[in-house]
């Protein structure tokens, strides 16, 4: 314990641990609970049965009624602990309930029926993860379809984004040509006009191209990101021109210079853009909501939204779906946090 405390209060500075340090720690611990708590709560809840979800006040961990198979009964029976009356202290299984009295049976003596007042008993509960919430997403709902739609849009849009943006960035960073500054300013200027402002006319273009209710209607309007061009151009400016000239002396065509020299050397910036693009497309909501109206074209986000909008919200499946949707991003976060945070800190974009 002392070593733990020692570790937690360790500082690189010369000063000791003072009040502001304690306050900082309190803030951070509270912040951790506030930031992770709700997510963790959703994850735990997603493993609860419908019965457990309806329970109020809720239990922290997913509990379900314990059941026992009793000779002579087809279905497993729910197990109760008797807290008062004649059979106090025994564990009995319920056969049926009639008013305030339950007909019960001792699993050890399956022939004898016992009558117990329902006030005198407590359900036996056990930790039980309702994995069926997840499996049913695939068997009863079209989850695989939504997942595929989301993955398809994310992967294809990201590949095209990286390709097109890096080509444009290469041209803007490594060639001197008339109109270069104008093109660059034009692209940067579009940072000022987020797509949310042009919803109506973009919808016209998309519908004219016959891409309404098609994943391409989500992909094409999203791939020419000014952020990506800007990010990559700034990085490519740091690649020495000598390297490109050396490749040209080595008989490389311009395309080869781009593909074999500039692209591999821009790998860090491309990684950042890839992560951003995956995040953007995976999390996209408003634009897919407008373009994709048929449920078989829904992305995960749209499916989640339409699920929760139903009259009787089916929380057990909705929570499982929420967890599956946040899972990939959580993995990205866990493994690439450093990349993402430095990328954002350097470029100031998200």
């Amino acid at each position: 314990m002392a070593t733990v405390l020692n570790f937690l209060t360790r500082r690189r500075g010369r000063h000791g641990f003072d009040l502001t340090d304690w306050l900082s720690w309190a803030y951070l611990v509270f912040g951790t609970v506030l930031m992770f708590g709700p997510v963790l709560w959703v994850v735990l809840s997603s493993f609860k049965t419908d019965a457990a979800l309806a329970q109020y006040p809720p239990t922290l961990l997913p509990f379900a009624a314990k059941t026992v198979a009793v000779e002579g009964y087809d279905k497993p029976l729910e197990l109760y602990r008797i807290t008062g009356g004649e059979y106090q202290g025994r564990h009995l299984a319920e056969i049926r309930r009639i008013g305030l009295v339950a007909q019960m049976v001792d699993p050890a003596e399956p022939d004898k029926r016992l009558k117990v007042n329902i006030k005198d008993r407590q359900p036996e509960q056990a930790l039980a993860f309702a994995v069926s919430n997840y499996t049913e997403l695939f068997s009863r709902f079209n989850f695989a379809r939504y997942l595929w739609n989301s993955v398809f849009i994310t992967v294809v849009a990201t590949v095209i984004t990286v390709l097109f943006n890096s080509m444009a960035a290469f041209a803007l960073a490594k060639y001197k040509f008339r109109g270069r500054t104008a093109v660059f300013l034009l692209i940067i200027a579009t940072l000022m006009i987020p797509p949310t402002i042009n919803l109506v006319p973009i919808f016209l273009v998309v519908s004219k191209l016959g891409m309404v209710n098609s994943p391409w209607g989500v992909i094409w309007p999203a791939v020419a990101t000014p952020t990506g061009v800007f990010l990559l151009r700034q990085y490519m400016l740091t690649i020495p021109d000598d390297l490109l000239d050396a490749a040209r002396m080595d008989h490389a065509s311009e395309w080869r210079v781009y593909w074999r020299i500039v692209m591999p050397l821009s790998a860090p910036a491309i990684a950042v853009l890839t992560i951003f693009s995956v995040m953007w497309r995976w999390n996209d909501f408003l634009w897919p909501l407008i373009v994709l109206t048929r449920s078989e074209q829904f992305t995960l986000q749209l499916a989640l939204n339409s699920f929760q909008g139903e009259l009787q919200t089916n929380w057990s499946h909705l929570l499982a779906m929420t967890v599956l949707t946040l899972l990939p991003i959580t993995f990205v976060f866990a493994f690439l946090q450093k990349y993402i945070t430095t990328g954002i800190a350097q470029s100031g974009v998200k």
Binding site: G31, P38, V39, S45, N283, Q301, L304
Partner: peptide, 19 residues
């Protein structure tokens, strides 16, 4: 810890809090 929610999709964020 503080950065994690930034990556979550808006729909997921809303559902977490709705719950």
């Amino acid at each position: 810890v503080f950065f994690y929610p930034v990556l979550l999709s808006p729909v997921v964020v809303a559902l977490i809090w709705k719950w």
